[in-house]
């Protein structure tokens, strides 16, 4: 039995210590919000918090987590949406949404460390991959959650047929 603390609850799981946290969360604890994308810590879809740090759960052996606190997306918004999630909603960030849980976990950890991140901070922290291409909105939403500048959208809309946008 391995003892875990996930989203503030003590859990006992009967698994091999080398099993990555990702699969313990998904298949043993039925917390499917955390996603599998690559299995080699490249894409970040599996990002969770361990003692407040963003970690890639697909390469984190569950046996290494004794005495540590794991938070997943299910725990993050347990008491209503966080400001990061609200910013995500406001800026309509997700497309397919598959990578977005990892993005939100990574952004949340970034803002815990740096309350006013620069674009360079965002580039360095947000190494998560998104195939749909939501990156511009991810950046905007992080700035919005931090209360830092959000560049005005310069997107002009020309509607020669009178249709209003």
């Amino acid at each position: 039995m391995i003892k875990l603390n996930v989203n503030g609850r003590a859990q006992n799981v009967d698994v091999e210590p080398e099993m990555p946290l990702l699969w313990v969360l998904r298949d043993e604890l039925k917390l499917a919000g955390t996603k599998y994308g690559c299995g080699i810590a490249q894409c970040g879809a599996c990002t969770v918090h361990v003692d407040g740090q963003a970690v890639r759960s697909c390469v984190t052996p569950v046996g290494s987590l004794a005495g540590k606190k794991v938070v997943t997306i299910e725990g993050l918004g347990a008491r209503g949406l966080t400001r990061v999630q609200q910013a995500w909603l406001e800026h309509e960030v997700p497309q397919c949404g598959y990578c977005q849980v990892g993005m939100i976990m990574a952004a949340t950890a970034l803002l815990e460390k740096k309350s006013k991140p620069t674009d360079a901070d965002i580039d360095a922290a947000m190494t998560n991959l998104c195939r749909c291409g939501t990156y511009a909105r991810v950046r905007k939403a992080i700035h919005a959650a931090a209360g830092t500048q959000v560049a005005a959208s310069p997107e002009p809309v020309l509607l020669p047929n009178g249709q209003k946008a």
Partner: peptide, 10 residues
């Protein structure tokens, strides 16, 4: 989607 709730195939 921002709450990690949708059920994807996986």
């Amino acid at each position: 989607k921002v709450a990690g709730k949708p059920i994807y195939g996986v």
